[in-house]
Amino acid sequence: MKKTELKELMINSLNPDGDNSLIASRLEDEGVSYNFSNDFSEKVTNKLFAAASGITRELEFVKGLNYVFYRIAFTGIAAILILLLSIFLSEGSLSVNSFLGLGNGYDESIFYILAGN
């Protein structure tokens, strides 16, 4: 196709009532063709599904982390309760002194303990 013919075709393609269904294919025959690379479809699906599996892995990790957190938290709470109970049973109260193991002792006895006498 000559350049002038091509230009005319382009201008006529913008006529409001013209049938353009053939113009695109005529232009394609003249080398006006647009396409993506051959592996375009593969690239898109790889990007999409790799991202999806990445998200799944991330979700599983977060779930696992939650599980471990709850296990540790419950064990910790149970340990604290047992400790409180044992302090209460041995010292008879839950005061600061009983926590420090000073329930029934005189102040002076601390120095004995610290001095090792």
């Binding site: 382009m10 393609s13 913008l14 695109a24 232009l27 006006v32 063709s33």
Partner: peptide, 25 residues
């Protein structure tokens, strides 16, 4: 031919370019 079409399209204002792409291409 490809060069003429591409140059012509790229020199159009974007609001016209989209219409030309729909009708012509």
């Amino acid at each position: 031919a490809a060069e003429v079409v591409n140059k012509a399209l790229m020199n159009l204002e974007p609001k016209f370019r989209v219409i030309v792409a729909m009708r012509m291409l």
